[in-house]
């Protein structure tokens, strides 16, 4: 009895220490983010002098200053642009990636394994080898300076990661449902629409979620194609706070708008955490 209790106390102590360690490390890790949020409410001259988390004075000046935006265009416009880009991208990816995934996972056709292998190779391809010709192509369409170079590819299933994720998921669904529907006279498209899509809902949520995050956070494409302030996205607009030599003129406003820019990711993450973990573990999606 006594020995058993000792072992139990030992385990409890070890677990307690582990908890303590994990919590301490966790606080260290998210301290910069917390500090950023708190500092966005500090008067500009107190941001540097105060490494603490409790502000000595609270102001909303930074938000007012930051919201004025860039070149006469307010941050409201930038947020609207980003949200529009995300919404259309999600729609495009959901349609195009699920169509391709259904073909790969369920339909029999000549060359299926060949095209699947091709798709897997594009998954690892660095985007830079296609960058210049894509830019020349979009420029010849007169699309530089519009949302089209960012949105059009989403309707053509260019995010192979999502096709792969959906293929994996659809393969795991029971085939008997398709067969029963076929016997009942359902067409391939009917099966896709009425059986596969509803059952694949969790995977589709993961696709929508990561499409949102990647489009929201994308910077490179926005830098290339969103060339005028009225069509700037939030990330492209945040860059204007950092001068060309790297100096920042208004830190308070920069931190305030950065905090706002992170808000959607936060909200989505805490409301849809399950889908994150599923997305990452099935395909190794990078956040």
């Amino acid at each position: 009895m006594g020995r058993g209790n000792n072992v139990k106390t030992g385990v409890a102590l070890r677990h307690g220490l582990t908890h303590l360690f994990i919590i301490a490390l966790g606080i260290t890790m998210i301290y910069p983010v917390l500090w950023m949020i708190v500092s966005s409410f500090k008067p500009n001259n107190m941001i540097f002098s105060d490494p603490g988390l409790i502000p000595k004075a609270v102001t909303f000046e930074n938000y007012a200053a930051g919201w004025k935006g860039y070149a006469g265009v307010s941050f409201g416009v930038f947020f609207t642009n980003s949200l529009f880009l995300c919404a259309v991208s999600i729609l495009g990816n959901l349609i195009s990636c699920s169509l391709a995934a259904y073909a790969f996972a369920r339909l029999k056709f000549t060359g299926r394994s060949f095209w699947f292998a091709v798709m897997m190779v594009t998954l690892m391809l660095p985007a830079h080898v296609t960058l210049v010709p894509q830019y020349i192509l979009f420029n010849s369409f007169g699309w530089v300076g519009t949302f089209l170079p960012i949105l059009t590819p989403k309707f053509l299933a260019t995010d192979a990661f999502f096709v792969f994720l959906l293929v994996q998921f659809i393969r795991s669904l029971p085939k008997e449902l398709d067969e029963a529907a076929t016997i009942d006279g359902c067409s391939k498209f009917g099966i896709f629409l009425r059986i596969i899509l509803p059952l694949a809902l969790p995977a589709l949520v993961t696709v929508a979620l990561f499409t949102f995050l990647w489009t929201w956070d994308d910077f490179f494409n926005h830098l290339l194609y969103l060339t005028k302030p009225p069509i700037f996205s939030v990330t492209r607009a945040l860059r204007t706070f950092v001068g060309d030599a790297g100096a920042v003129s208004n830190w308070g406003a920069a931190l305030a708008m950065s905090t706002l820019a992170m808000l959607p990711a936060f909200l989505l993450f805490f409301s849809l955490q399950r889908y994150f973990v599923e997305g990452i573990t099935t395909t190794g999606l990078k956040g």
Partner: peptide, 24 residues
């Protein structure tokens, strides 16, 4: 049926991946 469902991806692959790769 298979190729019909695959059409968006195929167009994307040829126009936005394969052709740009050869071109670049």
């Amino acid at each position: 049926a298979g190729y019909l469902f695959l059409t968006p991806w195929l167009v994307g692959f040829f126009v936005l991946t394969l052709y740009p790769m050869i071109y670049s």
